[in-house]
Amino acid sequence: MSRLFRFPSALRRHPDVEAWFAGGDAALRQLARTWFERIRDSGGDIRELLHDGHPTACVDDAAFAYVDAFGAHVNIGLFEGASLDDPAGLLEGAGKRMRHVKLHWGRPVDEAALGDLIVAAYRDMRARVDAEA
Rank of each mutant, 00 (worst) to 15 (best):
Y122M: 00
L114I: 11
D124N: 10
D68K: 05
D130T: 05
D124F: 03
L78F: 15
S42E: 08
E48N: 00
G115L: 02
A26R: 14
G89A: 11
L31D: 03
A82L: 07
K102W: 05
A121D: 01
K102E: 10
A112H: 04
R3H: 14
R99A: 07
L28I: 06
G81E: 03
M125Q: 14
I39F: 04
R29K: 12
E18M: 06
A65W: 10
R38Q: 13
L4S: 03
S2Q: 06
H73M: 02
W35T: 04
D110V: 06
R107D: 12
Q30V: 01
Y66V: 01
A22Y: 12
K96E: 13
E48M: 09
A121P: 02
L49M: 12
L11S: 12
L28Y: 02
A82T: 06
S83Y: 11
G23W: 03
D60E: 15
M125F: 04
A127I: 03
F7E: 14
I76F: 07
C58S: 10
A113E: 10
N75P: 01
G44Y: 05
G43E: 03
G53L: 09
P87L: 08
S42A: 15
K96R: 15
G43K: 05
F21H: 11
G53N: 04
A32L: 10
V59M: 02
L4Q: 04
R12S: 11
A57K: 10
A62G: 09
W35Y: 15
A32D: 03
H54D: 00
A82N: 03
